[in-house]
Computed example of a mutant assay.
Amino acid sequence: RFYMNENIFPNIDILFLNEKDLIKCGVKNMKNCIDVMEKHFSLIGNGDYRMGGANGNEHGLKMSFPESSPIKNFPLNGPDYRFMAMPAYLGGEFHTCGIKTYGSHQTNRLKGLPRSVLMLQLLDAETGAPYAYMSANLISSMRTGAVPGLGIRYLSIKEPKIATIVGPGVMGRTAALAIATEKPSVTTIKIKGRSEKGINEFIDFCKEYCPTFKDFVVCDSIESAAKDSDIIYFGTTNAAKYEDNPFLKDEWIKSGALVISTSALLMNHEGWKDTKKFKLVSDDYKMYVGWGKGKPAPTQKNVSTLIGMAFYDAVVEGIVKESDLVEIGDIVNNKKQARDSDEQIIVYAVGGMPTEDVAWGRFCYDSAIKNNIGTKLNLWNSPEWS
Rank of each mutant, 00 (worst) to 15 (best):
I189F: 08
N238S: 13
K227A: 05
E208D: 14
T174A: 04
D228E: 12
I199L: 10
A180V: 05
S195H: 05
G193K: 01
S195V: 07
I191C: 01
C206A: 15
Y233Q: 11
K241N: 15
P211S: 09
A239V: 08
Y209P: 00
D230H: 11
K214W: 11
L177G: 00
G198K: 11
D215R: 12
K197F: 08
G235V: 08
I231T: 02
K197L: 12
N200K: 15
A225V: 05
I232Y: 00
F234A: 08
F213I: 00
A225S: 12
K227G: 06
F213A: 04
A239S: 14
A175D: 10
P184W: 10
K183V: 06
T212L: 08
L177Q: 14
E223G: 03
A178Q: 09
G193I: 08
C206T: 06
I232H: 00
I189L: 12
A225T: 06
I179F: 07
P211D: 09
A175P: 01
I203W: 14
A226N: 00
G193C: 08
S195F: 03
N200A: 14
C219T: 05
A175H: 14
D228T: 14
D228N: 11
T188Y: 01
P211Q: 10
I231W: 01
P211F: 07
E196H: 13
I222T: 10
K190V: 01
C219A: 13
E208G: 03
Y209V: 09
D230Y: 10
I222V: 12
E196W: 11
E223S: 08
D220M: 11
I191W: 01
E196L: 14
I199N: 04
T236H: 09
I191S: 03
K183M: 07
Y242W: 15
E223V: 10
N238C: 10
E201H: 11
A178I: 04
